[in-house]
């Protein structure tokens, strides 16, 4: 039996659509609430980011609670950057008790790229160990070997980077994540479908659902900035040129067009099991993409 609505959807064989919402650096959550309301019935699940790019914000678990309150299906993004194994386990107990049952396990960006560069980087666990730890909790004991009064059960996701400029070590890590118990993967932003095709040739041997990550660009400048400053992001020159080909002010429209085009191809060619749309600050345009790509989701 499925653990969560999202897991049920993963198992259904239907094309899956997820998106992400980044919480604010504020105690005013009205914008996030607005975005969640806008998206919750149009996608299968909403990821809430965990201090994305190591910038301190309202926490992922808080955003997930808002998604639940508003009747949506959250995916708790959990990085190993800021919490040791005690804090990670405790937060998972909290999440489960509040019916937050989808977790995306990440190592987390380096503290050095964020806005608290002098903070102590934790990394007590890495992403593979985090997946294993969750499976341990599910078996009824914590990492210290102590029995839990009642055990949780999660739907576990992880990430992979099909466009990494040196793919072999990434594939080894991908194998470890699958073996540790990941059920779905949301990829880092993909800009060339050729790399997704290559990756899927490899990944299709595993029993795991792959959602292609798509970042919606808003200008050529943003693309260049991300290339230089966001860990792992590699945006091809062809995409940057395409973004630069439009007049000023039309960049986001172009970004929507590119994302839509990619989603349509992914779906038509049945390249992978779904998509994960990252609009980085432009969450309100996600419904436009879904409509343009003729994706109307029906969350269970």
């Amino acid at each position: 039996m499925a653990n969560s609505l999202f897991e049920e959807k993963l198992n259904s064989g239907e094309f899956i659509v997820t998106t992400e919402v980044g919480p604010p650096k504020s105690v005013d959550v009205s914008e996030v609430v607005h975005h969640i309301k806008l998206l919750k019935d149009k996608v299968d699940a909403i990821n809430i980011t965990d201090h994305q790019s190591s910038v301190m914000r309202f926490p992922s678990i808080g955003g997930c609670l808002l998604v639940k309150e508003l009747g949506g299906e959250p995916i708790l993004q959990m990085t190993c950057r800021d919490r040791n194994r005690l804090a990670l386990q405790a937060e998972l107990l909290l999440a489960y008790s509040r019916d937050i049952k989808n977790v995306l396990c990440l190592t987390g960006d380096s503290v050095d790229v964020g806005d608290h560069k002098e903070a102590k980087p934790v990394f007590d666990l890495d992403s593979v160990q985090l997946i294993k730890m969750i499976r341990t909790l599910e078996s009824g004991t914590d990492m210290g070997g102590n029995e839990l009064g009642a055990a949780p059960k999660f739907c576990i996701g992880a990430t992979v980077h099909p466009e990494a400029d040196f793919i072999e070590p990434q594939l080894i890590k991908f194998d470890k994540k699958v073996n540790a118990g990941a059920q779905f993967l949301q990829t880092q932003g993909i800009f060339e479908l050729a790399s997704l095709r290559r990756f899927m040739q490899y990944a299709s041997q595993f029993n795991i659902k792959i959602l292609a990550g798509l970042i919606v660009l808003s200008s050529a400048g943003m693309a260049r900035y991300m290339n230089n400053n966001v860990p792992g992001i590699i945006i091809s020159q062809a995409i940057i040129d395409e973004m630069a080909s439009v007049e000023k002010g039309k960049g986001l429209q172009k970004g929507i067009e590119i994302a839509t085009r990619m989603i349509k191809t992914i779906k038509e060619e049945n390249l992978c099991h779904g998509v994960h749309i990252m609009a980085v600050g432009n969450e309100s345009i996600v419904p436009d993409i879904l409509e343009a790509a003729e994706l109307v989701s029906t969350p269970g």
Partner: peptide, 30 residues
């Protein structure tokens, strides 16, 4: 990050996401 099971996804051109002058340890190890 001192991680034990392979590289994070942050390296570019064999360099670390935290410092573009520093080699990614996990690519060296691989």
């Amino acid at each position: 990050k001192g991680i034990l099971n392979g590289p994070c996804a942050g390296s570019k051109n064999g360099k670390c996401e935290a410092n573009k002058d520093v080699d990614c340890a996990w690519i060296l190890i691989y």
